[in-house]
Nucleic acid binder design. Structure first.
Length: 969
DNA sequence: AAACGGACCCTTTTT
DNA sequence: GGGTCCGTTT
């Protein structure tokens, strides 16, 4: 890396480009950073540089990220680089959280009540739905919402720009969108709410009118710049308006938020608007193996409009990525499980479940995978998808809290009016909202006046309803409100957050409510409530000892100090939408990560699976931008360090069982993939170890760890799922540690399976990509009557002609010689291994002695055997070579085990009937936490495994009993 | 007339 | 899990 020792510790370990980026004194700096190029590291170092070397104060630096996770990570790493906890003073967070900070602190200058709440997506949706219904608009509320959001996200500059030509009259639909927009805004205003986009819009308004708010800011740094939208771009400029020092980091190839109005053109805009913007490209990829990177590039390069850039791999070739075809989504999931097992087993203790991730286009694809992992007893964690805060019982509690904090929040109040059931139905609620609208009162005011007898509600409310409402909602919440302010007694302390929630639970008799309303799973739900309290406690604790969220004082500018816990907690809930409690604190047990690709951005794992790579998922049916969908796949693929698996079921999983079509992004390059998992022989494993910089345990240790029955190869599922059924014998095969090849008849059986499936494979065209032409081999092999001899011939010409592509493993590499030119197995790992081989590995009891005579590399031997459908060991060395058979113990040729044994996992897919994955040896794999950790971040109970088996006790239906029925007549 | 409860449909990506 | 349709209950 660094040729000379850098003067400053900060620069240590940075490459040239990174160092230029970190130390640049250009006012505006754009860092173009490909995947795995040390982007975060560079940005972190630059912040440290600005503080320690340039001399900026942390509180005068803004670092904006795109996701909460990225913000957290950035803060962590800057903290480590700086020391002294100085990172806490940085103004660091997502654009939205930074905007909120400015608005709570200075919002009163633009007439914003400092106690504003944040309308989340479902708030927006329901209120827009109501508006459309009320005004009888013909538009689809969802479309309206998107239209409104787009308008806001575009930014004020774009909106102000006169559209070319005469302003065309808005279409009738646009007119309706417009009225909906207006109604929606006035509704939000009445409820004192800002939606996500408003946070940015209003902050822009604030900073435009009161530039002094940011007069202290010396430098602004923006991460994931390619994902900024128009309004964020404006916000960035306004935040930096004092000194105009801006650093952006991004990669156009990883722009995957176009649907959220992100504009890649902001990059060009930056160059145009800021005169001399220095530009640094980080091109070295420190993350992935060459072959993973190469294949990812093949995918992204299909986009011809894209700005091409180079990526230099620093790692070895590594194992070729796999494209696997499976029969169904269920089989796909089972295969993933078997493959996870196989690789982890074969790695000894080098890797754990923590090193595996499964990346999905959409969260809904996780069902089968979760259930397979659950069945196999593998711990996993699902990020993205349904959030903890979205669970019904939690959402209800949050809505109660929101109404406590903001009585005028009509959306929240409307949602809890009939939870628990109080006899308020759709019609009544609609009526109340309408009445509030027309009488310019909040719904809360209407109801509380009605119950106090001050003002009769026009909406019909029966006596029973009224009593339940008063006793179960209005009074308790009012009580708590008073307690919060410490006004209920002279010597009473104001309530803390946890106390507020606990009081609420008591006053609502929430546990009983859960029992009554959700008899079957109230225990789970109550556990979630407990978890929620835990989260609140954590938040409260963190808040006490951090200055975070406060902006530095600016002379002559009045601040509103946000002291109350509840609003801050609620804002945090809306903005940090996925809770990660217990994640960082305690060491959790190793688990596989399932994530949406969007949420996986910026992260990496040694092993990555990308399932469901078919049309309608990649690209998604509902997406409008195929190029973005391609980039999404690119992002997913470039998360992998050492092993990358794509897979595709033959049939759609959603009921109708339609046939799938391989994703058009993958189709043109499918020949560059292996069609099943690689053989994890010693060189391959060592290659992985090198990439992830870990130590591979000695062979003996690995084998000791293997369970009695273990299939060391990816052979539990047919390579071609069209093929009717896998041969029975293909299940558990016992590894043989040594001995001559086994020539039993059964073996023929399952080998033949592979031989036939190969014929059905699409032809491969690897040659054009600089890979070995596997297909050519394949065809040659099959055509030549499947004899080892022919296979050998097919292998031969290239190397002898010395035209072997640079990245192809030389045939000499397969042969152990003393000649220096030949690679030894301990050298760089095999890059391209012929497809469909059933490689043999020397899992001998002792290391191979360097033979005097050249010996055939096991990989080659395997190639012949597998490809050639040999019943016996190949009579390899037709020419000069002789094989010492004893040295190669053949994993895959040991006799198949009787099927019946150990078959305890019930499977419900008789059609596909893939062999059962073998249960791991006890203690080798973590098992699923059955404890409902609940959280989006906690361990989840696998779908379909939940509470079944525990028959819900039939419970008496009890009506929700109000606590007090008491109001003046 | 309004509310409730069961059956049946579909489900992108996130602050 | 959530929204909607429809028959039943309050």
């Amino acid at each position: 890396m660094a040729p000379s020792t850098p003067k400053h510790a900060i620069l240590h370990g940075l490459n040239d480009a990174q160092r230029r980026a970190v130390t640049s004194d250009a006012a505006t700096l754009a860092i173009l950073a490909g995947p795995g190029s040390g982007k975060t590291h560079t940005l972190t170092a630059r912040v440290a540089w600005l503080i320690d070397h340039v001399g900026y104060q942390p509180e005068n630096i803004i670092v904006a990220t795109f996701t909460v996770k990225a913000a957290r990570e950035m803060k962590d790493r800057i903290g480590k680089a700086l020391g002294n906890g100085r990172e806490k003073k940085l103004i660091l967070g997502t654009f939205h959280s930074i905007a909120r900070r400015y608005l709570t602190t200075y919002g009163h200058h633009i007439g914003l009540s400092p106690k504003f709440g944040i309308a989340d997506e479902s708030d927006s949706r329901t209120s827009i739905e109501r508006i459309c219904k009320r005004l009888q608009l013909a538009v689809d509320p969802r479309a309206a919402r998107m239209w409104i959001s787009k308008k806001k996200a575009q930014g004020t500059e774009a909106a102000a720009k006169p559209t070319k030509g005469p302003a065309k009259p808005p279409s009738p639909q646009e007119a309706e969108f417009g009225t909906c927009y207006q109604e929606y805004q006035s509704h939000l205003e009445k409820s004192n709410l800002l939606d996500y986009d408003d946070l940015l819009v209003r902050c822009v308004e604030l900073l435009r009118q009161f530039p002094r708010c940011v007069s202290n800011i010396q430098s602004v740094l923006v991460d994931e710049y390619q994902d900024t939208n128009g309004i964020q771009y404006e916000l960035m400029k306004l935040l930096a308006q004092q000194h105009w020092r801006i650093t952006t980091v991004g990669d156009p190839d990883q722009s995957i938020y176009g649907w959220r109005s992100a504009e890649i053109k902001n990059l060009r805009r930056m160059f145009q608007e800021f005169g001399r913007t220095e530009r640094v490209s980080l091109e070295e990829n420190y993350r992935s193996s060459q072959s993973i990177l190469h294949l990812s590039m093949l995918v992204i390069k299909q986009d011809e409009t894209r700005f091409d850039k180079t990526l230099k791999p620093v790692h070895d070739k590594g194992s070729r990525p796999v494209l696997r075809r499976l029969k169904s989504a269920a089989a796909e999931a089972d295969w993933i499980v078997s493959e996870i097992r196989r690789v982890l087993m074969m790695s000894g203790s080098m890797m754990t479940h923590n090193d595996v991730s499964i990346l999905l286009r959409s969260a809904s694809l996780s069902r089968h995978i979760e259930s397979s992992l659950g069945k196999a007893g593998i711990a996993y964690r699902m990020v993205g998808g349904h959030k903890f805060y979205d669970r019904a019982e939690i959402k209800t509690l949050i809505d109660y809290l929101r109404v406590i904090a903001q009585p005028e929040n009509n959306v929240a109040l409307a949602r809890i009016l009939n939870v628990p059931r109080r006899g308020f139905g759709e019609g009544t609620i609609k009526g109340l909202l309408q009445e509030a609208e027309t009488s310019s009162l909040s719904v809360w005011a209407v109801l509380s006046k009605h119950c106090r007898g001050d003002r009769r509600s026009k909406t019909k409310i029966t006596n029973v309803m009224e009593q339940k409402l008063s006793g179960g909602l209005l009074r308790p919440l009012e009580d708590i409100r008073k307690h919060i302010q410490g006004a209920s007694g002279p010597d009473e302390n104001p309530l803390g957050l946890v106390q507020i929630i606990e009081q609420l639970l008591v006053k609502l008799d929430f546990q009983k409510y859960l029992e009554t309303a959700h008899a079957d799973d109230h225990e789970q739900k109550w556990a979630n409530v407990q978890e929620f309290i835990g989260l609140a406690a954590e938040f409260e604790r963190d808040m006490d000892n951090s200055e975070e969220d406060f902006l530095p004082e600016i002379e002559g500018l009045q601040q509103t100090k946000e002291v109350e816990v509840l609003p801050r907690f609620l804002a945090n809930v809306s903005l940090a939408a996925d809770a990660q409690a217990g994640d960082e604190g305690q060491e959790s047990k190793p688990h596989v990560t399932i994530s949406t690709i969007h949420k996986a951005k910026g992260l990496e794992w040694p092993i990555v699976f990308v399932p469901a790579v078919y049309k309608s998922v990649f690209p998604h049916t509902r997406s409008e931008d195929d190029a973005e969908e391609r980039r999404l796949l690119y992002v997913a693929m470039t998360r992998a360090q050492a092993l990358l698996y794509l897979s595709c079921p033959l049939f759609n999983s959603n009921g109708n069982g339609e046939r799938t079509e391989l994703s058009p992004f993958v189709e043109p390059v499918k020949g560059s993939f292996l069609n099943k998992g690689p053989c994890f022989d010693r060189p391959v494993m060592q290659g992985i170890a090198k990439i992830i910089q870990r130590k591979l345990p000695p062979e003996e240790t690995i084998f000791k760890g293997l369970p009695a029955m273990f299939s060391p190869e990816d052979n539990l599922f047919p390579v071609d799922p069209e093929e009717a059924k896998p041969v029975e014998g293909a299940r558990a095969k016992r590894m043989r540690l040594q001995g001559p090849g086994y020539d039993g008849g059964e073996e023929v059986q399952w080998h033949s399976d592979y031989a036939t499936t190969m014929e059905g494979l699409p032809s491969f065209s690897g040659a054009s990509h600089g890979f070995v032409s596997v297909g050519a081999h394949q065809e040659a092999i099959t055509a030549a009557n499947r004899t080892a001899t022919v296979a050998q011939k097919a292998e031969k010409p290239q190397p002898s002609a010395n035209k072997r592509p640079a990245d192809q493993r030389s045939i000499m590499g397969f042969v152990r010689t003393n000649s220096g030119s030949a690679r030894t197995p301990s050298g760089p790992p095999a890059y391209s291994r012929p497809n469909n081989t059933v490689p043999r590995q020397i899992f001998g009891t002792e290391p191979l002695p360097a033979p005097a005579q050249p010996a055939i590399d096991p990989v080659l031997a395997g190639h012949k055997l597998g490809a050639g459908k040999m019943m016996t060991r190949p009579s390899v060395a037709k020419e000069e070579k002789t094989v010492k058979r004893k040295q190669y113990t053949c994993f895959s040729s040991s006799p198949p085990r009787p099927a019946a044994a150990n078959d305890d996992t019930g499977r419900n897919n008789p059609a596909a009937k893939p062999p059962e994955p073998i249960r791991p040896a006890v203690g080798l794999h973590a098992t699923t936490t059955t404890l409902p950790k609940g959280l989006g971040g906690g361990f989840r109970r696998p779908a379909g495994l939940g509470m079944e088996g525990i028959k819900p006790i039939e419970r008496l239906r009890r009506p929700f009993k109000p606590l007090t029925i008491n109001r003046p007549a």
